[in-house]
Design a protein around this nucleic acid. Structure first.
Length: 95
DNA sequence: GTTGAGCGTT
């Protein structure tokens, strides 16, 4: 019954030089990151400054959330929350 | 080389 839910994390206020693999590295230390996605704007050639991290375990995801939320990454303070749109995943904590 | 609020492209 131990099904991997795969909770998605919403990371924002990232520095302009933080990459997807850097983000995955940072969050990989708290748990297994299935997917690390940084949103970029193809029009301005500039990252939107936020991204999403998918964990195999929702428990590790929440640990990483509290561990990385309000933390300094790449010299910038970032915010971490549970993802809301695109795909369901925050229901484990909501319900 | 920027920043700020913010929930994304197959």
């Amino acid at each position: 019954m131990a099904k991997r839910l795969g909770l998605q994390l919403f990371v924002s206020r990232l520095s302009a030089y933080t990459t997807n693999e850097h983000l995955k590295k940072l969050f990989s230390r708290f748990g297994e990151v299935t997917e690390a996605r940084l949103i970029m704007d193809p029009k301005t050639r500039r990252p939107k400054g936020f991204g999403f991290v998918t964990y195999e375990s929702e428990v590790e995801a929440q640990k990483a959330l509290k561990a990385m939320n309000g933390r300094i990454v790449d010299g910038r303070l970032i915010f971490v929350e549970v993802a809301q749109t695109r795909k369901p995943g925050g229901d484990a904590l909501s319900r």
